[in-house]
């Protein structure tokens, strides 16, 4: 028993040290978001100051902040749901079947993730112009699917491979159709994996700057573009409001993390089914 305690102490020690490293910039943003303009650029930097809520109020009062949030929500919901709808079935096909060319297609999907957006930006803009999707939510969503499809396919493939095949075989013997098996057998047990890739995909879309910039103009201005446009002036950065807006825009992510946590625990109890 003594060993266990030492092990745990080391674990806590590592976690605390790493937490300091990972939280430091966010803590700094948090402090900045409560400072007035003079305090944000004070030298030496101020740790103690009289806090103000005006940065948060200014951001919340801003019409365009809400419009940009709306754009980001629409784009990420559309792109994540479509990417999951076409990605998970394909991952299942890769994990459970053998067919000609499957590895080639899988590799091709992986390579789409490797081509930097910068390289294909100009022809991609031309393609979207040709099909009249420039500056539309659908257009930006389609581009965001590119960011996440490879992750969904490959991560889900690995998750599905780890799942026991017995349940599916049993369902097949019971006469259930294949699509029905995916829906009512596979999706529930693969939930931890699905939730994880959903959260990651959402992040890829939510944080993307490049496609939103090149494919959107007036009607679609996702949050990352809006934040940098509104709070980075020609002469200086508006640190207080940028930090406040940056922190406010993480709320959807925090909600998803909380959902994820619940599902991870549920996944744990489901894992016991295998035995």
């Amino acid at each position: 028993m003594k060993y266990l305690n030492i092990n745990k102490i080391i674990c806590y020690f590592i976690l605390i040290i790493s937490s300091i490293f990972f939280i430091l910039p966010i803590l700094w943003m948090f402090l900045q978001s409560f400072k007035n303009a003079k305090d944000t650029i004070a030298i030496p930097p101020k740790i103690f100051f009289s806090p103000t809520f005006s940065n948060y109020l200014k951001v919340l009062k801003n019409d365009y902040f809400w419009e940009a949030t709306f754009d980001s929500v629409i784009v990420s919901l559309m792109s994540v749901s479509v990417a999951l709808a076409i990605g998970i079935p394909f991952a299942y096909a890769l994990a459970r079947f053998n067919f000609r060319g499957k590895n080639e297609i899988a590799h091709f999907i992986l390579s789409t993730k490797m081509l930097p957006g910068i390289v294909i930006a100009i022809p991609l803009v031309q393609t979207f112009n040709y099909i009249n999707l420039l500056d539309t939510h659908i257009g930006v969503s389609i581009a965001h699917i590119l960011l996440m499809l490879a992750v969904i396919v490959w991560v889900m493939r690995a998750f599905l491979q780890n799942l026991p095949i017995d349940l599916e075989e049993a369902a097949l013997l019971d006469g259930a159709s294949r699509l029905r098996i995916i829906w009512s057998v596979i999706l529930p047990i693969a939930r931890p994996g699905i939730v994880t890739v959903t959260a990651l995909s959402f992040l890829f879309s939510w944080n993307d700057l490049f496609f939103g910039l090149t494919l959107g103009s007036f009607d679609v201005v996702p949050l990352p573009i809006y934040l940098t446009t509104e709070y980075i002036g020609y002469l200086a950065v508006n640190w207080g409001e940028l930090s406040a807006a940056g922190l406010l825009s993480t709320f959807p992510i925090i909600i998803i993390v909380i959902l994820l946590r619940d599902n991870l625990i549920r996944g744990l109890s489901l894992g016991a089914i295998k035995g």
Binding site: P25, P224, L227, I253
Partner: peptide, 9 residues
């Protein structure tokens, strides 16, 4: 939490 903050910010 670093994942949640937009990379530009």
């Amino acid at each position: 939490s670093p994942l949640a903050i937009m990379p530009v910010v």
